[in-house]
Design a binder for these strands. Sequence first.
RNA 1: GCACCCAUAGCUCAGCUGGAUAGAGCGUCGCCCUCCGAAGGCGAAGGCCUCAGGUUCGAAUCCUGAUGGGUGCGCCA
Length: 581
Amino acid sequence: MNLFTDIRARVLEAIEAMQAAGDLPEGLETAAVTVEPPRDALHGDMATNAAMVLAKPAGKKPRDIAEALAARLASDDRITSAEVAGPGFLNLRLADGLWHGVVRAALANGTDYGRSQLGQGQRINVEYVSANPTGPLHVGHTRGAVFGDALASLLAYSGYDVTREYYINDGGAQVDVLARSVYLRYLEALGQEVAFEDGTYPGDYLKPVGGALAKKKGDAWVGQPESVWLDELRTYATEAMMDLIRDDLAALGVSMDVFFSEKSLYGTGRIEEALKTLKEKGLIYEGVLEPPKGKLPEDWEPRQQTLFRSTEHGDDTDRPVMKSDGSWTYFAPDIAYHYDKISRGFDALIDVFGADHGGYVKRMKAAVSALSDGKVPLDIKLTQLVRLFKNGEPFKMSKRAGTFVTLRDVVDQVGPDVTRFVMLTRKNDAPLDFDFDKVLEQTRENPVFYVQYAHARACSVLRKAEAAGIDVSDGALGAADLSGLAHQAELAVARKLAEWPRLVETAARTHEPHRVAFYLYDLASEFHALWNRGNDEPALRFLQEDAPATSQAKIALVRAVAVVISAGLGILGVTPANEMR
RNA sequence: GCACCCAUAGCUCAGCUGGAUAGAGCGUCGCCCUCCGAAGGCGAAGGCCUCAGGUUCGAAUCCUGAUGGGUGCGCCA
């Protein structure tokens, strides 16, 4: 149930009636007609731009159209007033019963109130994290993981058939480095002195992997050349790292539907197949790239390479898919991977990358556009840097100083709920400050606490009401007489609840889950305000002595707030708190 | 040199993908607990939405250019 689309439908009905009556010409385009909350609540409950949008094509003055529209809408008993304002806005005030309907809808549908069919069951693939399997996830990955996961949930809530996917970069040279590093830890576990030179991973997290290997293999690989152990160790080490990463993700509450291995693309003809598809479209050629303008790399020299004509699909320059020595560039398996996603029948793709991958956006979009003949849209969301703070002081990450901050460090210190919420209180394309101390503060400036507190307060009222003998089951509250819910302060909260389905749709359409977090903060603010007004105006207290029917109406509103907060937090992957301690 | 992202109150940031007098938190100043949790609430002050053009009924939002910051730029995935 979305009150805004209901009223918009009513407005369009009135426009059709005006056309039938000859007040407006036939065949007008009404797609641009919107019904939205006015910026200033004093203007009314909803505003439509219909008259201004239609004025030009209809050849009439906006205010004249608005007047005529107002007359027709005013006859609807759901609309208590329709006033023309400004250049041709039509401000509508709605009957209290509609706001009561919002409360009832929230109680009847529970956390499904707000669910939409925007996606119409379209299959959409969200790829995120996709960190190299060479170590534990760090803070940067954490933001991508939280963002991707919340986006996926948001899309699922909006009627898409979502697949959450992780691309394992297990095909490149970094896996050899990993295998050699594990080999050193293996030797170490067997009592040898080892040195970690440049080009190896010295992290402690490989110690248990080397230890386990020593148990499994004994000294069979000691003193043996790489040719004996490298292949097997690559697989072994990668699997160990993926176990580690899966555990990290689980600690954050993230679970993937698909882990896709880059390695599975090599030696199976799948890269060749993807490139053949591009070649058939005339997009693959042998050539020499122009040198980049400005300062050249020291060792620059023209080289003959196999290139993808990505400029045909919006890129700035063509991109190499094969190195001069005949091996694939990293881009080739990426093309094959996205070709695979397209082949699996997804209607749309989303990639979540770190900001340092901004340079690959155009070429990746070009590849998907070429491979799908422009039929499968690819949206790439970049998550900006996370800056760490402790007590307001910048906190520099350094592997050497041992202050390398992992996902685990963050989750262990502040918990998954706080981590997730905080990471979503900023747009993905804005840098994020994460202060280990501030995110745990219990004050209004900490949105996590503020929203959780609102939910806990609502639960507290429900408990008290129940203790007072009021039936607070959703069924009873939904069936209650809500006429006791008539004060503007109370209806203001219901108005906010009415925006929820609309908010979900815009957030889903723009792929911006942070909007949910900000909405919840606003809703919490409305609720806290109403709560406190009870201090000055006893009539606004939720529990009314000796007036169980009135109390029940007010409790219904409280419960509806709790339901929507719970639904919103659910999308963000945060557990609502029933009480604060 | 080129591409992408960003620029909104003293600070940190929203702004519903073109709507009315641009919002919130922090900070500053002034209020509200014999009362469901004051871990909260109410109010005041604070703005050339970086700048200059353009598009139109209407621009913080779209386009062009400039300035300032971030990221990246052919055998590293």
